[in-house]
């Protein structure tokens, strides 16, 4: 069957898609929690304040079956109940701030899949983009081996201090600066 075309997420998703605790893939304060954070930038290096990032990753034990409960609702009031503080669902959703920044609290992905899969949406972006955030010590896998050596570094997070990783997403830029995006279709 022929696929339904993509359209931009537009400027007004902000009251619909982000949800409380969307950035807390692991409960805040849980031992072993790490932070990934950075900026989303356009072709002039300006921050993009209306991007939406989604994250999906393997659990520390390698599981990638996921669990429900990312957007837990209160079935009495219909309001947001928030995550349950226990379950690792593997899924995160974060809108960029007015300064183009984002951050995510999660658990470190396992050595056999040492990356966060990212889906990028934004006003002005007609079709979402996939990329990966690799841990600094990740060994080259099939995807990394397909990327020209001079562009590979755009997919590695840098450890700023223990447990805090920086990663910027440049939608457009010089070949060695523009984030590498992956085509799964």
């Amino acid at each position: 069957m022929l696929p339904t075309p993509s359209q931009t997420v537009g400027p007004f998703y902000g009251y619909a898609l982000p949800f409380p605790d969307g950035a807390a893939v692991a409960p805040l304060g849980r031992p072993g929690t790490v932070v990934f954070h950075g900026l989303v930038l356009d072709g002039e290096g300006a921050p993009i304040p209306d991007a939406l990032l989604e994250f999906w990753q393997a659990a520390p034990d390698g599981g990638r079956q996921g669990r429900a409960g990312s957007m837990r609702r209160d079935h009495t009031t219909g309001g947001h109940a928030g995550r349950d503080g226990v379950t690792f669902t593997g899924f995160g959703r974060v809108a960029t701030d007015a300064d183009g920044s984002w951050s995510l609290h999660t658990l470190t992905p396992p050595a056999e899949a040492p990356y966060l899969a990212v889906c990028v949406f934004a006003r002005g972006l007609l079709h979402h983009l996939f990329t990966r955030v690799y841990l600094p010590d990740a060994r080259p896998d099939e995807v990394l081996r397909r990327i020209p050596a001079e562009r590979r570094s755009t997919l590695f997070a840098r450890e700023e201090r223990p447990g805090v990783f920086g990663f910027d997403i440049r939608l457009q830029g010089a070949p060695h600066e523009e984030t590498v995006f992956l085509d799964f279709a």
Binding site: Q57, V143, L171
Partner: peptide, 25 residues
Amino acid sequence: LRHPRQPLVPADDLKDPDAVELSGP
């Protein structure tokens, strides 16, 4: 200013069955 100029890296034919993008939330 919001589209990549570099070609996307093809990942539709990965042999890696462990790619996390094959599962989902």
